[in-house]
Design a protein around this nucleic acid. Structure first.
Lengths: 215, 215
DNA sequence: ACAGAACCGTACCGTACGGTACGCCAAGCC
DNA sequence: GGCTTGGCGTACCGTACGGTACGGTTCTGT
């Protein structure tokens, strides 16, 4: 008895959002410790209500991920001002935001949950995370890159390639190491370097795609 | 009753390796379908034997990952020949091998398993995968990079940064998308582009770190 | 030839957890 | 005040699975 997923609706009642918050908290704390009983207890509601609202465990999980993934802050950069300096700042800001998001505990949890899910023929969560993570960034960044090209500030044939290179330069091996639980990458440790890393990645990106680069 | 893990020993009897193969097959097919009963049935052995050999489910999982991760082919490049051309070929070969590994079904399965594991305070598998994946590549690549620098073919302050940039340029968003089950990235689809992607990444890497690059 | 170990197959136990049923209370509505 | 609805809490059921026990069979060493 599948329940229609609420997409593009923030139509969760406050009570329901409280439940989703509880579920997310459990996910973050316990990883796989998201049991229906635990959520019910944490949110002070009955299991019956959970099943009524979300259909089954998978529905609850999906709703939680969906709801949380949709609220990752995505930088809104103005496309109008296109001086070389403004473009660089925009892109650097993107790098910063991307790193900040990826490093966050919520993001790590969501990605882990989705990967776990994807290990069982189910790609629903994976698609959701993908859609709200990398792909969302791509949707926002591409127009900026193309505007930069139109203004002769950047040079590339394929904006897709340019975006993916940017992603690689910024993320490097940080995300996979965090997902794998690398102990030598403490949260604070990484956070302290976000500024420098974002700047470095931006410099490298411009070195590769800046219009003043030798072809 | 923990069982000592066999590290740096290929000391699994053929029979045990058959069991591990069965376990890996189940992992690849079913993701989380690795149940002790299933492994026993698939390998035509008794559960009691499994527990005797591997201690518990976690031990079996660890042994499987350990055993499999250790056998990922790692390119052996000769450090001696250090013409500019040879260096570029070595690095390009690294890119190719890295991509080929990452795209493989076994690698995806192992990484997913380790990530799932890491979502439960357990970082054992994560460390193993990390150690045999990115870190192994790093151990092999770094000397080459440094040799390249000593021969004035490359220029960088920090070989760690250079390695991580290389990793980012090569892997980009491919791995995370595969782990998340991105349907638009079929195996064959990606494999077909390995050659081109490896070359492109190498070019970009030399553009950033080649000695003839403007500082 | 015989004892003992190794191991297979199966049956069994305990528990955790997804999912359901039911009794009860409180709020809104007639 | 009665009645309905929504939701809480708890008890309950079924099952899947980790882990153990045990009888029977093959292999090994003496």
């Amino acid at each position: 008895m599948p329940v229609t997923i609420k997409v593009n609706e923030e139509s969760f009642t406050p009570r329901q959002q409280a439940v989703l918050t509880a579920a997310l908290d459990l996910l973050v704390e316990n990883g796989e410790g998201l049991t229906m009983t635990a959520v019910a207890r944490r949110a002070s509601c009955s299991k019956e209500t959970l099943y009524k609202w979300f259909g089954d465990r998978d529905g609850l999980l999906t709703a939680t991920v969906q709801w949380q993934a949709a609220k990752v802050r995505m930088p809104q950069v103005d496309r109008s001002a296109l001086s070389a300096k403004a473009l660089r700042l925009s892109i650097e800001q993107f790098a910063r935001d991307l790193l900040t998001t990826i490093v966050g505990e919520v993001s790590i949890t969501l990605n882990r949950t989705a990967v776990t899910h994807a290990a069982q023929e189910k790609d629903r969560l994976g698609i959701i995370v993908l859609e709200n993570g990398p792909l969302a960034i791509r949707r926002r960044l591409k127009p900026i890159l193309e505007a930069g090209r139109d203004a002769r500030l950047l040079r590339f044939d394929n904006s897709e390639d340019a975006y993916r290179t940017f992603f690689g330069l910024v993320v490097r091996d940080v995300q996979i190491r965090l997902l794998l639980g690398d102990r030598s990458l403490t949260q604070s440790n990484v956070e302290a370097n976000i500024e420098a890393d974002a700047t470095a990645a931006t410099n490298q990106f411009f070195a590769l795609y800046g219009a003043d680069t030798a072809p």
